[in-house]
């Protein structure tokens, strides 16, 4: 039950997790490794992206952060609470909220506002406070106007924003998005990313974003790459995305702008740093042109 004093919201050391595969008769078969000696440290208020291909163990890790799974080796502290101690489960789930992949399968109520209130009802928050916090949360994700709607009539991006509101209404210190953008269209993805970045910036909520989309990871303070249940790379987006070939070996790619810059650099253009966004690439190219004493690169 005891809480460890720490400024790190997540502190995991040498985590391992195995699960057993059952055959069609229900007999236990081989044991597969999902996490293998994972060390993870996240400071309060950070924005961390976790990348990795399907089956790399990133979703398993996400479920540990909310004590939905507990490690069978190593230790994991979330907000100072040991996840192995069953008495801490509800405190951990209050301090770390989760948003899952399928928007349809995580909305419980038939009205938007009732769904946002669900977690608070579970915590036993008094009715008047529930309403206040539901309103705050819905306004924070820009869904207040839709509070009376049925979730079935919302777009994918809107459903995920409702799910995020449901989490932040519980006033968590950390939100984990487990491939929450995977099933959305580009507009919906932008919506969700904009929302969590805003929460991270204004409310200092720790965000752990698990994704397949490299463009979403460029906004992170830190990127972690997983492969075969291990953490294989870690660093700032710039450090990570500069290693185009290494990422490819882990079955990942880099944002298109980064890849284009990398290709140009290989052809000998003077691009110094790793480029993450379109604007950085334009900047780098125009800067390069200027350095070569050419403010108007081309005579038209």
């Amino acid at each position: 039950m005891a809480r460890k004093k720490t400024d790190r919201i997540i502190e995991g050391h040498d985590l391992s997790f195995h699960y057993t595969v059952y055959d069609s008769e229900g007999n236990p078969g081989e044991r597969r490794t999902a996490l293998d000696g994972v060390d993870i440290d996240v400071q309060q208020g950070q924005f961390v992206a976790i990348l990795g291909h399907n089956g790399s163990g990133k979703s398993t890790l996400a479920r540990h952060l909310n004590a939905l799974l507990v490690p069978d080796g190593g230790t994991l502290y979330v907000d100072g609470y040991d996840t192995l101690d069953a008495g801490n489960v509800w405190k951990i789930r209050q301090s770390t909220g989760m948003v899952f992949q399928n928007p349809d399968n995580q909305i419980i109520a038939s009205v938007v506002e009732e769904d946002v209130g669900f977690g608070l009802e579970n915590q036993g928050v008094p009715t008047a406070d529930i309403w206040k916090r539901v309103e705050e949360a819905l306004r924070a994700v820009g869904m207040w106007k839709m509070r009376g709607r049925s979730p079935n009539r919302l777009s994918g991006g809107q459903k995920q924003r409702v799910a995020i509101a449901g989490v932040i209404a519980m006033h968590p210190k950390c939100i984990v998005l487990d491939e929450a953008t995977a099933m959305l269209d580009p507009g919906g993805r932008k919506e969700v990313i904009r929302t969590v970045r805003e929460l991270n910036r204004t409310e200092n909520v720790t965000v752990i974003l698990i994704t397949h989309y490299m463009e979403e990871a460029v906004f992170a303070d830190r990127v972690i790459v997983m492969d075969h249940g291990k953490v294989v790379m870690g660093g700032t987006p710039r450090e990570i995305f500069s290693q185009v070939e290494k990422l490819k070996s882990f079955r990942l790619d880099v944002p298109q702008a980064t890849l284009l810059a990398w290709k140009l650099k290989q052809r000998g253009l003077p691009i110094k740093d790793t480029v993450l966004t379109i604007d950085e690439l334009i900047e780098a190219l125009n800067h390069g042109a200027a350095e070569n004493d050419l403010t108007q690169p081309v005579s038209r």
Binding site: L68, N105, Q106, G117, E121, N122, T127, G166, M170
Partner: peptide, 23 residues
């Protein structure tokens, strides 16, 4: 879906009717 939903409910601290308030 049932599996996903159970997980989502658990993640939001659902533990039966005891100690629950109503919105």
């Amino acid at each position: 879906r049932a599996n996903d939903l159970a997980l989502a409910m658990e993640a939001r601290g659902y533990h039966g009717g005891v100690g629950r308030t109503r919105m």
